[in-house]
Amino acid sequence: MVARDDRRAVDPLIRVNRRQAYEAAQRRRALMVAGVSTVVVLAAAIILVPLAPGWPAVRASFFDASVFAETFPTLLQAFLIDVMIFAWSVPLILGLGLAIALARGARAAALFPLRIFGAIYVDVFRGIPVVLTIYLIGFGIPGLGLPRPWNSPYIWGTVALVLTYSAYVAEVLRSGIESVHASQRNAAICLGLSERDTMRYVILPQAIRRVVPANMNMLVALQKDVALLSFIGPVEILRQAGIYKSLLANFTPYVVAAVIFLLVTVPATRYADHLLNRDRNARS
């Protein structure tokens, strides 16, 4: 596309048709308007915000460059704990989410309790704020007087995250399973495949592929929610930032933490969006 435009620019003999000329003009106009409005907004922010009466104080306590440089390495290291907790939670969440999704779809009469359990599970853990689940499980279960290491907040914090997120993932997967057209199932059972094989080889592979983008978004949210475990003990990035805040009487560590989260979550969200768009394009 670009190459063709370039060729046209150097070679006037390649004629631009009316539609192309019109669209090129429109594009130029749109670019200019967007550029001007962006510059205006940015300039306003840069000029107006420092005019606020509290700005010098805010700048000193939130955007202190020396505090930023001092706390960044340690906070980055503390973030590794978040990444670790995230890393071992993900397979557990996907496994449990799949199990719950399948339980909810179980049709056999003998499996009815499983279905009920799946439905209640999803309702309960989607209905409670993550923080509450983390508090209740993270403080409640070790409170039973479990011996070390079974009272570790890492374990019970992970459990709380897994319980909550697998409920969401289960719902996403279930919607994926239901989005596979009934004719696929018919084709499979008409070949003599069992219900189980039909699910495993025909329905699930298609369903899982369809919900990858949605689950990517879920994982981005999980990465952020790992920070909530700071409330029950682990000295991960949010807690470490809190320690620095008290130590240095400065909020800049929180800004550092936010920046570190963005470094990870922005690329991940963009990637998820890219997958979603690709999916949409492939289907239309």
Partner: peptide, 12 residues
């Protein structure tokens, strides 16, 4: 054996 109007091949 049965074959349907819409083929119903497994796309994956």
């Amino acid at each position: 054996g049965i074959v349907f109007q819409s083929y119903n091949l497994f796309p994956h």
